[in-house]
Amino acid sequence: MMKHFTITKRQEEHIAILEINGELDAHNAFQLEQQFKTLIETEAYHIIVNCSNLEYIASAGLGVFMAYIEDIRNLGGDIKLSNMTDGVYHVFDLLGFPSLYDIHRDESEALSSFKTQK
């Protein structure tokens, strides 16, 4: 059975914000992949993924983040993560993502981090 997973997209100035909701696993990972591909095609390289409603993330979901981060950074942008619940952060942390990814407590922090970089 397909688990519940949705993505909502917003724009804050030049920064694209993806809110991912529900459970991100092997079956719906392609949805997030598709979003990243579209953003790269439209040259929106500054991306925040707001994880406030992300209930669960499987390994395949983590893989999606890895698959695009290098491309986007090479293009002068970044993917920043924000608003993770403790459970979700625990998984990211377990796998060592904090050393590779810019992970923020909340969205505004992530936004300002983009702005100061700029």
């Binding site: 092997a26 990972a29 395949a60 983590l62 999606v64 981060i69 590779l100």
Partner: peptide, 19 residues
């Protein structure tokens, strides 16, 4: 298609590599 994609994504996530 799904099986291969899944293998890749999990490997990327687990090994923290991007290619």
């Amino acid at each position: 298609e799904f099986i291969l994609n899944n293998l890749l994504l999990i490997s990327l996530g687990k090994l923290r590599v991007s290619s």
